[in-house]
């Protein structure tokens, strides 16, 4: 298909989205990520029964935490698609990047730059 998607996305492969924990999402922001999205299988199609449903709950919980600490819950998003939907994968990547560009960079980046700390 040779589809293109934005190059500023870092893909972290996991065996199942059920492996994704709130802590993984928070650590990404701690290290300077501007946004995180979790791409799981279609709901009802999880090979491990409910991994993607668990991931959705964890994403929602992460959104609440990030909202509470002033980072913005809308920087985290869950998507569900099947492995045959390459075109949709590329479209979602573009959609997410556009959304994050509108939101601006992770607020902690500015603070880190101001204090001269490294790690982003």
């Amino acid at each position: 298909m040779r589809l293109k998607y934005p190059a500023n996305i870092k893909i972290v492969r996991v065996p199942c989205t059920g492996k994704v924990d709130i802590l993984h999402i928070l650590r990404s922001f701690e290290k300077g990520a501007d946004g995180v999205y979790v791409v799981g299988c279609l709901e009802g199609d999880c090979h491990h029964h409910s991994g993607n449903l668990r991931a959705r709950k964890r994403v929602e919980q992460s959104q609440k935490i990030l909202e509470a600490i002033g980072i913005g819950g809308n920087r985290v998003q869950m998507y569900n698609l099947s492995s045959s939907e390459g075109a949709r994968f590329a479209r979602i990547a573009g959609e997410m990047v556009d959304k994050i560009i509108k939101l601006g960079p992770n607020p902690i980046k500015k603070a880190k730059q101001a204090t001269g700390a490294s790690g982003c």
């Binding site: 802590l23 701690e30 935490i65 990030l66 600490i69 980072i71 902690i108 603070a111 204090t115």
Partner: peptide, 21 residues
Amino acid sequence: KKEVGILASALRIYFLKEGKE
């Protein structure tokens, strides 16, 4: 242990955002 990790990470993000070490 997990909840400790989540709270610690959330607080770190909060303080970094506030520009506090």
